[in-house]
Amino acid sequence: MIELQQVSKRYANGFLALDNVNFHLEAGEFAFLTGHSGAGKSTLLNLIAAIETFTQGQIIVGKQHLKNISPRQIPYLRRQIGIILQTPNLLRDRTVFDNVALPLVIAGYSYKEITSRVRAVLTKVSLINKENFFPLELSGGEQQRVAIARAVVNKPSILLADEPTGNLDPDLAGEILCLFEQFNRLGMTILIASHDLGLINSVKHRRITLAEGKLIDAPVTA
């Protein structure tokens, strides 16, 4: 589902953030991307979502080759990928419902379909009673759940999350992880960047570990 072949990323300032990275994530897999701060986790997720371009190698997402992807194709790539960042990144002037509905509006779904899908996903993240709240009226954990709902409402085949629990206390982090596992059971391929070893060790999933831009096979001990 996600394949990296000898991928290197050198930023414009000359810094080599990823150095010859290879891995293959099968459809339906659940993996953590770990490593210390500055190891290149965010960079790697940004490459997969075509937010950044890489300087060497090839990345294949689904059937799409990302080397030299045209700007016209990027929106359609991103509709296959749910992206969750560390900050929820919600639109403050729109309600929870409207924030979650946005990907469906963009994809051109009918009003009926939008309503039923948004309600379903809000039920799943336990926010159905707050669909008319504005983001600033929610707690941090709730905001992150809205961001997750927005990322999965379009039923993407891939979910990328960059430190989704970074700002949350362990209980909330556990709840969010639970949500991801539910989506994984529905068939979604999931890649979560996190340096929260406590959280990672609480479940048994594949780990992909980066150190200074290089892939490390040895498992990281808690």
């Binding site: 929106p75 991103r78 509709r79 946005l102 963009i106």
Partner: peptide, 8 residues
């Protein structure tokens, strides 16, 4: 945000 969630 719209770009990130696939807006053309």
């Amino acid at each position: 945000v719209i770009k990130l969630i696939g807006g053309t």
